[in-house]
């Protein structure tokens, strides 16, 4: 009984966080539908009951996996909005509360171009970051780059993380919420 109550509390907390994330990326009337879909997937996986014991789900830490589920559901939402809606409806549907354009709504070609442009900008001020990110975009894995750079994988991973944080800042300056 106690375990069940803990699971319910965990699910409630997760839902609150997913709602907050979704609110910044979706029209308000779609937030609950999208989060509901994500929560059903999480529930069916039984993570809430095994929160302390499950180390990874599909190779990701549990909460990171839950966030990935939300990311995919949001991506599906925007794909659907493009497919189902006509031009005028689409304009309304894609407007976010902040007026910013979420990364999820970009066409894949636009997304690639936008990120590459931002990496180019980043490279001007931080050549090493630019190099790491270009290698990642070219399909190299962090462990391959670490080998080439003669770095431990965890050191490289943290450097790349900082580079991505800088990139996020540049994208947000362009009005793109990541």
């Amino acid at each position: 009984m106690e375990a069940s109550r803990e699971a319910d509390i965990w699910l409630d907390r997760l839902r609150d966080r997913l709602i907050a994330i979704a609110c910044r990326r979706l029209p308000s009337d779609s937030v609950e539908d999208v989060v509901q879909d994500a929560m059903r997937i999480v529930f069916e996986r039984g993570l809430a009951e095994r929160q302390g014991e499950t180390e990874t789900v599909d190779g990701y830490p549990p909460v990171a996996w839950c966030f990935q589920v939300l990311r995919n559901v949001i991506g599906n939402y925007y794909q659907k909005a493009r497919t189902l809606s006509r031009e005028t409806v689409l304009d309304d549907a894609l407007a976010t509360p902040s007026g910013r354009t979420p990364l999820e709504m970009l066409e894949s070609s636009d997304l690639a171009r936008t990120i590459k442009e931002a990496v180019g900008l980043l490279e001007e001020g931080d050549p090493r970051c630019g190099r790491y990110l270009r290698l990642l975009m070219g399909g190299s894995t962090p462990s391959e780059i670490a080998g080439d750079e003669r770095l431990k994988a965890d050191v490289l991973y943290r450097r790349v993380y900082r580079c991505r944080a800088k990139l996020r800042g540049l994208l947000e300056d362009k009005g793109i919420l990541v």
Partner: peptide
């Protein structure tokens, strides 16, 4: 945001 960017890459 970090997960989103990692997956985008």
């Amino acid at each position: 945001s970090e997960i989103n960017l990692v997956e985008s890459f």
